[in-house]
């Protein structure tokens, strides 16, 4: 009896606790939903990391994959498909094209001057004296140092050889250099008056001078060992023998190609 009573009391206790359990269920449900949502987000986040990693690798290899795709794909239609397969017509077509190409090549060749001209490379300080396609003489020269000289009163000069096509405007034997202001400034000297005697330097430009305009010249140098280096203030310096050859070959109006 006691046991029965006890069991009854247990049952009753369990029956009492049932409504309590019913009360806690929604909370548990909410917790479970939140947990599952968080887990889903976790999966998405993990997937995103993996996906971005995969996408970056694909991005890096995309050009190679495209190349592979192009090697598989061939343009079926060729220009020549529209050509007649008749040999006679093909021969005619070929002859016509050959004539056209030869004509275009001649037009292209005619752009090179037949009279002597000079090519100067300011990048590796080399020159070539040419006549048509023939090289008459070649050697080292010196071109602009690419120095930008600045003064305290904000005056500035850039020592650069101009590029493009220039022409010989004048030729002189034993040219005299009239020193500009920068020649004194870069030596730390006071700038003299425009007509002052110390402005005129005899012999510094060598035996010959070929004037290119805007103050630029092709001239000689006292510092032969500096040839082949970018040391000038924009002019083109040549060795004595090269200068003589250039002076004798190039007439006024001759082209000088500088790059």
């Amino acid at each position: 009896m006691k046991r029965q009573r006890f069991s009854n009391s247990q049952e009753s206790a369990s029956n009492k606790s049932k409504p309590e359990q019913k009360k806690t269920d929604p909370v548990l449900k909410i917790d479970a939903a939140a947990a599952s949502k968080a887990e889903s987000w976790g999966d998405v986040r993990l997937g995103c990391i993996a996906g971005i990693f995969f996408a970056v690798i694909l991005c890096a290899f995309a050009p190679h994959v495209r190349e592979l795709a192009f090697s598989l794909f061939s343009a079926k239609q060729r220009t020549t498909d529209s050509l007649p397969a008749d040999i006679g017509a093909l021969k005619k077509e070929q002859a016509q094209l050959q004539r056209e190409v030869a004509q275009l090549r001649r037009r292209s060749d005619r752009l090179t001057p037949s009279s002597p001209f000079l090519i100067v490379s300011s990048s590796d300080n080399q020159f070539r004296l040419m006549q048509g396609k023939k090289v008459i003489r070649q050697g080292v020269c010196s071109t602009g140092s690419n120095v930008l000289l600045k003064t305290s009163d904000d005056r500035r000069w850039i020592f650069r050889t101009p590029t493009g096509v220039l022409r010989i405007k004048d030729k002189q034997k034993s040219p005299i250099w009239r020193k500009p202001d920068w020649a004194f400034i870069e030596e730390g000297k006071a700038v003299p008056a425009p007509a002052a005697e110390e402005r005129f330097d005899f012999g510094a430009l060598g035996e010959y001078g070929l004037y290119l305009g805007d103050g630029y010249l092709i001239h000689g140098t006292l510092y032969q060992r500096m040839l082949g280096m970018p040391v000038t203030h924009g002019c083109i310096r040549l060795g004595d023998d090269d200068l003589k050859a250039v002076y004798l070959k190039l007439g006024i109006g001759a082209k000088v190609f500088i790059y």
């Binding site: 889903s40 998405v44 993990l46 997937g47 995103c48 993996a50 995969f54």
Partner: peptide
């Protein structure tokens, strides 16, 4: 979820 997130960027690329 994982596969969808992993393959979508790759697919776009």
């Amino acid at each position: 979820f994982f596969l969808l997130a992993a393959f979508l960027p790759g697919l776009v690329v």
